[in-house]
Design a binder for these strands. Structure first.
Lengths: 147, 147
DNA sequence: TAAATATCATTTGTATACAAACGAATCACC
DNA sequence: GGTGATTCGTTTGTATACAAATGATATTTA
């Protein structure tokens, strides 16, 4: 039975390099590097998502914005703080609900949105450059089913 | 020209929910939650990767281990510290290169590996449950091309 | 209305993740 | 043999990301 080739018990059935979780981390890591190469105003992917979502959905509360981009309350706090420091969003107390902090794109943020979308298209193009157009559609379709 | 339907300039060409980077973050987030549900010894995905890689490749230096799982030197430091605190790895000064810190699986770590692989298989199964077997193979193949 | 529940924003603590800088040790090359 | 470049591990600083707890405010329900 022994064919002389090295054989590590169990390993043939489980290789880290074939695991979806490991590969997802690597893919997102690579994407983040590409994003940084293209980033306007040193925006991070999460800050970018917040701005794009605000442009798609309009002003909303801080926690609501977090839910709209799948960022929890503790994390969105810092994200909004940094967008505010960059003067890309404005903050207002909601008169109807004094718990809420209404977040809006500032004039500067609004002005930036078209450029952000162009940047996003470049990042997506580079991220997917190893795939043929047909493969890209298949990949995005399957990725959406996973989320 | 105006058909009365809402139309947001530019938005039809760029939707956050269709972007590969955004979807990769969501997919990895979901995977991490599934991982935590199954985790032995409160291991994180990165700690898990380090242990599996040690079992695949044998002892190595700290920075080398980081490179083997795509974790930079600053990050692998903390990962190894926490694995050491959990007594899953042992540390040795390399006599041939006094800069190097040789990391090995401890007896406890070695004993745990088979269970970790079983856990990893469960996590992968749940992560991919929305895909048919054929789709899983296609997805993993495309994901590997992206990394 | 009063009490129980829920939501909002915040804070603290832990764990990646990367950039930049550092001293110590090693290596490459002249 | 010496020197310049590289590598090793470490530290500091910034930015997600999540858990758990908190006080203030709203909402639900009894």
């Amino acid at each position: 039975m022994d064919n002389g080739r090295p054989f590590v018990k169990d390993e043939s059935e489980y290789r880290l390099d074939d695991q979806v979780g490991y590969l997802l981390r690597l893919a997102y890591q690579r994407h983040t590097l590409i994003f940084q190469d293209h980033a306007l105003n040193n925006l991070t992917p999460t800050q970018f998502s917040a701005l794009i979502r605000l442009s798609e959905c309009g002003p909303c509360s801080q926690n609501q914005l977090g839910r709209l981009i799948a960022v929890d309350a503790a994390t969105i706090k810092g994200v909004v703080d940094r967008l505010y420091d960059k003067k890309l969003v404005t903050l207002e107390k909601d008169a109807n609900d004094r718990r809420r902090n209404l977040i809006s794109l500032s004039p500067k943020g609004l002005e930036m949105v078209a450029g952000l979308r162009a940047m996003g298209r470049s990042v997506t193009e580079v991220t997917l450059e190893a795939l043929q157009p047909g493969e890209r559609a298949v990949f995005l379709g399957l990725l959406k089913k996973l989320v």
